[in-house]
């Protein structure tokens, strides 16, 4: 199981960096979807099945659809894109930065081994996802409802072509 998690972490990192570094926006969006899918696998491996399903369907699916439609709406010629935004040039320092940060973080981690927090007081007895989500987190569910309604208003307010 550890080995699978390590492989997934590596793939997640690669997908994330590709999403940032790739020159073509379409490929970036696909790399982002890949990162979401791999994150869903990690979630599944850590025992959170429902969150994994959500990540896979909503983030890897819906967000990608949104991005791809936005990209197709604003399609620019490939050469123009490269010349106009100079992404390759402006992003070229990223690998070096990531390597430095990575080395520093690993050194810190090696010096001070990760301390697991002390035993958590058993404040909540229920550890059943269904009960926690629908009963203990009702405020959040109402919050979600309001967020989605606001999202609907957003679509009405921002996406209409002509008034």
């Amino acid at each position: 199981m550890e080995a699978v998690i390590y492989i997934c972490l590596g793939l997640l990192f690669i997908c994330g960096v590709l999403a940032v570094m790739l020159r073509s926006l379409l490929k970036s969006a696909i790399a982002l979807a890949g990162a979401s899918a791999i994150l869903a696998i990690i979630m599944y491996l850590l025992g959170s099945v429902w969150a994994g399903i959500f990540e896979l369907s909503v983030c890897a699916g819906l967000v990608t659809v949104i991005f791809v439609s936005a990209i197709s709406l604003s399609n620019t010629d490939k050469q123009d894109l490269a010349k106009l935004y100079e992404d390759a040039k402006r992003m070229s320092a990223l690998p070096a930065i990531l390597i430095i940060c990575g080395v520093v973080l690993i050194l810190i981690a090696a010096k001070t081994p990760f301390m697991l927090p002390a035993a958590v007081p058993a404040a909540e007895t229920a550890d059943n996802f269904r009960e926690i989500f629908w009963n203990h987190r009702q405020v959040d569910i109402w919050g979600q409802v309001i967020v989605v309604l606001t999202g609907a208003l957003t679509v009405v307010a921002l996406f209409k072509e002509r008034e």
């Binding site: 405020v139 919050g143 979600q144 309001i146 967020v147 606001t150 999202g151 957003t154 307010a157």
Partner: peptide, 28 residues
């Protein structure tokens, strides 16, 4: 919601509601 919730995560959820509606109010 922000001033009445009793949970830090719920506070974050309502914070996002405030954020999203503010962006749209500015841009609409």
């Amino acid at each position: 919601g922000i001033v009445m919730v009793t949970d830090l995560f719920s506070l974050y959820v309502f914070l996002e509601i405030v954020g999203i509606s503010s962006f749209v109010l500015i841009a609409m």
